[in-house]
Design a protein around this nucleic acid. Structure first.
Length: 511
DNA sequence: AAAAAAT
């Protein structure tokens, strides 16, 4: 479906073209006409399929430039998402001359007040700061025509509902209400519908809740070995742009510190950091200065960095919806992605719950051995030498090099170099968390024998190179294609009857 | 139980 057929004006069509959009996605094609008609819309579609544009475009279309009031309000669950949504709206609205502003906590409120005084027609914000502005009377919502709850099921959940209700009270009853999300549990939908009039539900039917662009794997691990196993996977996959999700802020700190110690370009992000720091880290991640972003669920929803190649669930989610959103950070805008979920022995029931919601079977992977990890590191190091040879100023080292060559075997010298480039004795300890409340009586029956010990094949400071941007997809073949790490099953894991192959839970330790 | 969200 072409955007031109949806009833949008030339200004917007130009902005859409400038952004490089060719055809409307299904959620856009189905909701934009309804929204343009002024209907209340409940839109549900997979992550990364353009829901933001689906509500942003008709809102911009409806903006009356002669009306000096705030005409549309978008509420977001996190500050980063509010920033991103505002900037996307601004881009689409530029041609028409529409102003959008974002307001959120943790940043200077006076500057926000100034920006609100410049009469934006569209405001995007997080609940707390929106209420703050409402109470200060620096934000008036009495002329709002359209209200959007982005990530609606999150906004209508207990932690947010009171704030949302208070904000909605400030918006005229006679308004258009739009709810968008990839997930929408039935009981939350019932709450949301109460804020709507004659809601039109648009659900983009897909066999699965998650996009098939993401290959979903899981790995059975013990708590104490999780970190080492993750870095072994890193060594093999040479992840380019990766997000690692942890259950708590503390774990984010520990895991990101551990990765830094081992020479990865990593940084952690969570709600206890200053907003300046949060913004800086997001910027660094987008600009390639960080390869691995370690995050709490603050980064689970909405964040659109289409270059993300891998999502690791270092800690599995108890909340299946959250899983859908986390892995939805990759496989965006038609690109391929990989998700890796670690499952501790007592977490099997969460794995089942997630699969029940997504209707996708995750494929089991075996933890790589230390040898396989080393092999991966050597591959990276070998490539790195090629580029270092071009970059290094040889003159300064020539004499010492000659001396060494006269004294030792060249092969030995290179081996020493490689060992320096691949090894790092840094020990990383990640504290045990209180185990999740056990929904099952017990975990599985102990088919798993941990890949214990080892863990000494670590990188040195320069060992890891993001190597971003180059050929998508070959990355994936490196471990999913050679079959070495996969459990023993013949049909590639996802059998046609949807059953998990037998014995896929038994992972034997080869070491 | 955690995280997010105002100071």
């Amino acid at each position: 479906m072409k955007f031109r057929e949806l009833g949008l004006s030339e200004d917007l069509l130009k902005a859409i073209e400038d952004k490089g959009f060719k055809e409307a996605t299904p959620i856009q094609a189905e909701t934009i006409p309804l929204t343009l008609q002024g209907k209340d819309v409940l839109g549900q579609a997979q992550t990364g399929t353009g829901k933001t544009a689906a509500f942003a475009l008709p809102i911009i279309e409806h903006v009356d430039l002669d009306n000096p009031n705030v005409q549309a309000l978008v509420i977001s669950p996190t500050r980063e998402l509010a920033i991103q949504t505002q900037s996307e709206i601004s881009r689409f609205g530029k041609e028409k001359g529409v102003k959008a502003v974002s307001v959120f906590g943790g940043s200077d409120i006076r500057r926000q007040i100034q920006s609100l005084k410049r009469r934006p027609q569209i405001v995007v914000g997080t609940p707390g700061r929106l209420l703050d502005h409402i109470n200060r009377k620096t934000l008036k919502l009495d002329h709002v025509k359209t209200l959007v709850l982005d990530e609606a099921d999150d906004m209508l959940d207990m932690g947010f509902l009171d704030d949302i209700e208070s904000i909605i009270k400030q918006v005229p009853e006679d308004r258009q209400t739009l709810l968008f999300s990839a997930t929408m549990p039935a009981q939350i939908k019932r709450v949301g519908v109460q804020f709507m009039k004659d809601p039109q539900q648009v659900t983009i039917k897909a066999k699965e809740l998650t996009t098939d662009l993401v290959d979903q794997y899981y790995i059975r691990v013990k708590q104490f070995e999780k970190f080492d196993i993750m870095t072994r996977f890193f060594d093999i996959q040479a992840p380019k742009v990766t997000i690692v999700f942890c259950r708590t802020k503390r774990r984010v700190d520990e895991v990101s510190k551990g990765l830094l110690l081992r020479g990865y370009r990593a940084a952690g992000i969570h709600g206890d950091l200053t907003q300046n720091r949060r913004s800086q880290i997001m910027k660094d991640f987008k600009n390639d200065k960080i390869d691995v972003l370690v995050a709490t669920d603050v980064a689970a929803r909405g964040i659109d960095i289409s270059s993300v190649t891998h999502v690791y669930n270092y800690d599995i989610t108890q909340d299946s919806e959250s899983y859908v959103h986390r892995i939805g950070r990759t496989g965006r805008a038609g690109r391929h992605g990989v998700s890796m979920t670690f499952v501790e022995p007592n977490e099997t029931s969460y794995l089942r719950d997630i699969e029940k919601l997504t209707k996708v079977r995750m494929l089991p992977l075996k933890p790589p051995s230390a040898d396989e990890a080393l092999k991966g590191q050597l591959e990276v190091a070998t490539k790195e030498i090629g580029s270092l040879i071009e970059k290094t100023k040889m003159d300064a080292f020539a004499d010492s090099a000659d001396e060494l060559l006269s004294q030792y075997d060249a092969k030995d010298l290179v081996s020493v170099l490689l060992s320096k480039m691949t090894r790092n004795q840094v020990k990383v300890h990640i504290s045990a968390e209180k185990p999740l409340p056990n929904k099952n009586k017990r975990g599985h029956g102990g088919g798993y024998r941990g890949n214990r010990g080892g863990g000494n094949h670590r990188r040195n400071g320069g060992g890891y190179r993001g190597n971003r941007g180059g050929g998508n997809g070959n990355n994936r073949r490196r471990y999913s294609g050679n079959g070495n790490h996969r459990d023993d099953h013949k049909n590639g894991g996802r059998s046609s009857n949807g059953k998990r192959p037998n014995k896929s839970f038994t992972i034997k330790n080869k070491d």
